[in-house]
């Protein structure tokens, strides 16, 4: 069974919500990136979204843009992202579901078929392509389905009912609900309309719904967990890397920050 499905089943049985963490692959460098990620499962992360660095991340705010360029400076190419997944999967007890979070051009350049094949060989469980709406995703969906790789699509506050239905039908694994219009990045306040949007998505699908964009504190995670199946934190954790670039204990700081975030759910 696909690790994402399994994870959500387990969580459901335990009446828990999922904590999804985004990190850019190779940030701040290959070694430390692997090290940080290898700790995540023990610290309460349920699913990892692993960002493939891209030169022109047009749906990302400044924090993830900077992380992307840090990774690219370290030559974090698609090959090294796969290499990273391979190393992680070789570790005993590393069962964390991994969703590759990417833009379409690096995927197309790698070759869609080859990309899906590599994902399946190395133990990637799902893919989210930010600039590939269901309309453009026909071949991608078919190829991924054959290898039981989940295709996660996004619903936005601007998606009307007809599109939500289409997106729900195209999605497997879970559906990603974007909490507000805009790019990735932390916000002080969450959009009060999001619960309604999640409810609307649920009308068209039984898949778990994850809410992301702008979530940065344990409190906000709890807030989201009250009405959605999963909360995604990205920029806030990436920011911790940025803030501690010169510190020798960077990994420790990031891991500690993430476990605090995860604790937001555990207390419930």
């Amino acid at each position: 069974m696909n690790r994402i499905d399994k994870k959500f089943q387990e969580l459901k049985a335990a009446r828990r919500k999922a904590f999804i963490l985004y990190l850019t692959a190779g940030d701040p460098d290959f070694k430390r990136s692997v090290n940080i990620i290898s700790h995540m499962e023990n610290k309460g992360v349920d699913i990892l979204e692993l960002g493939v660095p891209f030169s022109d991340p047009l749906a990302d705010g400044p924090t993830i843009q900077k992380a992307s360029s840090r990774s690219l400076k370290q030559n974090a190419l698609m090959k090294s992202v796969f290499n990273m997944v391979e190393i992680l999967r070789k570790r005993k007890n590393f069962k964390l579901p991994i969703v590759l979070f990417t833009y379409y051009n690096p995927v197309m350049n790698f070759g869609l078929k080859k990309f899906i094949l590599r994902c399946s060989q190395l133990g990637v469980d799902g893919i989210l392509i930010l600039d590939l709406p269901p309309e453009e995703a026909g071949e991608y969906k078919n190829l991924a389905a054959k290898k039981d790789i989940k295709t996660v699509f996004l619903v936005s506050p601007t998606s009307p009912a007809g599109r939500i239905k289409k997106i729900a039908e195209a999605s497997t694994g879970f559906i990603y609900c974007v909490s507000r219009t805009g790019v990735t990045g932390a916000r002080k306040k969450l959009n009060t309309e999001t619960p309604k949007l999640v409810k609307q998505i649920k009308r068209y699908s039984t898949l778990p719904v994850a809410v992301g964009f702008g979530i940065s504190t344990p409190r906000q995670i709890r807030e989201v967990a009250a009405y959605a199946d999963a909360a995604v934190v990205g920029s806030a954790a990436v920011k911790k890397i940025e803030e501690n670039l010169r510190k020798r204990n960077l990994e420790e700081k990031v891991v500690r920050f993430v476990s605090k975030l995860a604790a937001g759910l555990k207390n419930k």
Binding site: L58, A59, Y104, L130, D131, L132, P133, E135, E136, F153, L154, V155, S156, P157, T158, S159, P160, R163, I167, V178, T181, G182
Partner: peptide, 21 residues
């Protein structure tokens, strides 16, 4: 209908923009 000239073009954008397009 998809906005393609042969195999070129299309709408490769984040979901938020699809409705505006």
């Amino acid at each position: 209908k998809r906005g393609m000239f042969g195999e070129f073009g299309g709408k490769y954008v984040p979901e938020t923009l699809m409705t505006a397009l």
